[in-house]
Design a protein around this nucleic acid. Structure first.
Lengths: 178, 178
DNA sequence: AAAACCATGTAATTGGTTACATGATTGG
DNA sequence: CCAATCATGTAACCAATTACATGGTTTT
């Protein structure tokens, strides 16, 4: 079900072709929230169009078809976003899974991984912050979506960075005690 | 592939039955990293046993079978954790997806959701912190796994809380300008 | 005795990834 | 004219969820 709404939301932000949407899933939204490949996107767009939640608004070269949400699609999206989200849905995140399983490693190995994680997080923070400054400098044409995503990413990586530091201390403390 | 390693990791921390593992996926690891239902776990345990990465270490009432990782399983897990993790894998997180699509809502609606998110995050932080204090008070028997998870959760929710506040300001600013 | 919970499994369906397939357009 | 990229689609396979199915044990 989530893919439907991801597509509706992306189209609500900006009308796009299936190809465009595939690219957009490789950016912020794909890194932190949800991703999909083109082989999943094209059939889903067809279904959404059949349900009249999206429609083709222009056709271009190479069979390119740009979709936009219909008013019905906007309503469906709004209902979903404002509706009850009791369970938060299932989560799949291989990166975080690795972090959670670290305690299965010997201390020295765990420290190596934790240092790597910290480095990676620091690097990502730097990338996102410089991107944000570029965007701000390039004028006010900052659309909400990418901006929200970048901020979310920066804060998430900061949390990861801090966690890795804390975890590393815990492991060191455990090593000393033994 | 990830499920295999999730199971190996959980068993490395503590030998468990399929039923136990199902419950454990409903806690920290399921909320932040990876989850699975029993109908996926039992067949996967059978496959892991066939590959000699896990083994049955005891049988109890009601056909209960407790599994533990074998040395080969431990090696496989270690290789995976220390191996190259170039792409971080795909991410699926419905909660975060909702956040990313918020910009499709009208400002007033978005503010309602953002306030809800902030409240939820604050509440989760409180729950996790009190749980951690309880654990600390209950003595030193704090195993690494749940502890790491709780800390990760607390930091993640803090990031979410901060993000929601920031996003709310952004939306308010956009509202005024229009 | 009944309800709640422990404990395991399989089958049917849906969701998602990888591989296969084709062709147009643009830039160098 | 060649390579890169744009653009769309389907098929085969694997992963995951939901529904079906059974029975033992503990608690009230």
């Amino acid at each position: 079900m989530s893919l439907r709404f991801a597509l509706l939301g992306l189209l609500a932000e900006e009308p796009s072709s299936g190809y465009d949407l595939t690219r957009r899933f490789e950016e912020g939204i794909g890194t932190f929230a949800w991703s999909a490949g083109h082989s999943q996107i094209y059939p889903e767009l067809a279904k959404l169009a059949a349900a009249q939640l999206v429609e083709v608004v222009s056709e271009g070269a190479r069979g390119r078809r740009v979709y936009d949400v219909t008013p019905a699609g906007r309503d469906a999206l709004r209902d979903w976003l404002l509706g009850p989200h009791t369970d938060g849905g299932t989560v799949r995140n291989e990166f975080v899974l690795r972090l959670f399983l670290l305690s299965a490693l010997e201390d020295a190995d765990a420290q190596v991984v934790l240092r790597g994680v910290q480095e990676f997080a620091a690097q990502q923070i730097a990338v996102l912050e410089s991107a944000q400054q570029e965007m701000a400098a390039a004028g006010l044409a900052r659309s909400a979506g990418p901006n929200l995503a970048a901020k979310f990413g920066a804060l998430s990586y900061q949390a990861t960075h801090e966690w890795a530091g804390w975890a590393s201390e815990q492991v060191a403390w455990r090593t000393e005690r033994s």
